[in-house]
């Protein structure tokens, strides 16, 4: 078994117009910048893939990463918990102009919906958002005297993930808090595409240290010395 792809372009094949794309990362930590920008370049060259639904905690910051996708015009809708950032112009302008959709999901509910999607659980109940506008229209049930809101699973066509280390079988580790949503998204997407700083021989990531088991990963491409979104923004990237 060898899930390693030679180039980012090859690894991104098959991403089509209108797809749901989960993108790992929380703020700049874990954002797969090289995968994202290769996809932006492809859209700007070929006009595809467009009309994407992007699932991430945030909705882009500055003009790199998801913000670059939004500026390019390839995002129809965001599913996120916090579409604000230190420089949220890309999303805010399009949102207020009615040019991009937003499904606002509380952060823990977003994580659990993705986990449920990856785990084959079509719905679950959470106390989060009970009695608030966010729960409007969702079924409510009482368990042991407390009210809970029903939430549905969330799946995607593709997940784009940044890992620290991968092996050819797709086993992954992450760097520090760059882990965040990525192990969940890797489970919940039909095709999980990973950029990894290092690719090692199977066995070099000890079985007790694997964070995402390879069964959840389809494609791995090496990006040595990847860009870090927050560092880029602080350097004034445009």
């Amino acid at each position: 078994m060898n899930k390693v792809y030679a180039t980012i372009g090859d690894a991104l094949d098959g991403i089509e117009d209108g797809m749901d794309v989960m993108i790992g990362g929380f703020g700049g930590a874990g954002a797969p910048i090289e995968l994202i920008h290769a996809l932006v370049d492809r859209y700007e060259t070929t006009g595809s893939p467009g009309r994407l639904t992007v699932i991430n905690n945030n909705a882009g910051n500055g003009a790199v990463g998801i913000a670059a996708m939004i500026y390019a015009g390839m995002v129809a809708r965001m599913v996120c918990s916090f579409p604000r950032s230190s420089d949220p112009k890309a999303f805010t302008e399009k949102y207020l102009a009615g040019e991009i959709g937003l499904e606002l999901v509380p952060q823990g509910t977003l994580a659990e919906r993705i986990r449920a999607g990856g785990a084959g659980i079509p719905a679950f109940y959470t106390p989060t958002s009970y009695g608030t506008d966010v729960a409007e229209g969702k079924p409510v049930a009482e368990f042991d005297g407390r009210h809970y809101v029903q939430e549905r699973w969330l799946k995607a066509d593709v997940a784009l993930i940044k890992a620290e280390c991968a092996d050819a079988k797709g086993n992954l580790t992450y760097r520090k808090a760059a882990r965040n949503f990525s192990p969940l998204m890797a489970m919940a997407a039909r095709t999980t595409i990973v950029q990894a700083s290092r690719i090692v021989a199977p066995g070099e990531i000890g079985p007790e240290h694997v964070v995402t088991p390879g069964i959840f990963v389809d494609r791995v491409v090496q990006v040595a010395n990847p860009q870090q979104e927050e560092a880029l923004l602080r350097e004034g990237a445009k």
Partner: peptide, 12 residues
């Protein structure tokens, strides 16, 4: 722009 983050989870 509405933004909720983890607040609705944290209160429960």
């Amino acid at each position: 722009v509405p933004a909720v983050g983890g607040a609705m989870d944290l209160v429960h």
